[in-house]
C-alpha cells in the first residue's frame, strides 16, 4: 500500500488558470489538465506520492488535493 495524490474536482481552480500542482510535480505527465472539465487529474500509475502538489495547493489555500492510500 502506498499513497497517491487525489484531486477534489470541486475544489480545483484550474479553470481560473491555476497550474501550480502541474508545474511543481516532479514527475512528467503525472498531473494532467482535463481540458474538457478544466480540472487537474492525477495519473495514478505515475504518482510517487511525494505530496508536493498538496503543499503548493494548500499554500494557495485551494486545498484541492489530498493523499489517499492505494
Amino acid at each position: 500500500m502506498y499513497n497517491v495524490a487525489e484531486v477534489n474536482a470541486e475544489a480545483c481552480v484550474a479553470q481560473k488558470g491555476c497550474r501550480l500542482c502541474i508545474m511543481y510535480c516532479p514527475e512528467a505527465n503525472c498531473i494532467q489538465l482535463d481540458t474538457q472539465k478544466m480540472k487537474a487529474v492525477i495519473v495514478e500509475s505515475r504518482c510517487k506520492g511525494c505530496e508536493l502538489c498538496v503543499v503548493v495547493c494548500d499554500a494557495a489555500k485551494h486545498n484541492a488535493i489530498k493523499m489517499v492510500a492505494r
Binding site: R19, I22, A28, N29, T35
Partner: peptide
C-alpha cells in the same frame, strides 16, 4: 505546455 502536451521526458 505542462498538463496538456506530452513532455519530452517520461517516467524516471
Amino acid at each position: 505546455d505542462f498538463g496538456t502536451a506530452t513532455e519530452l521526458i517520461a517516467e524516471h
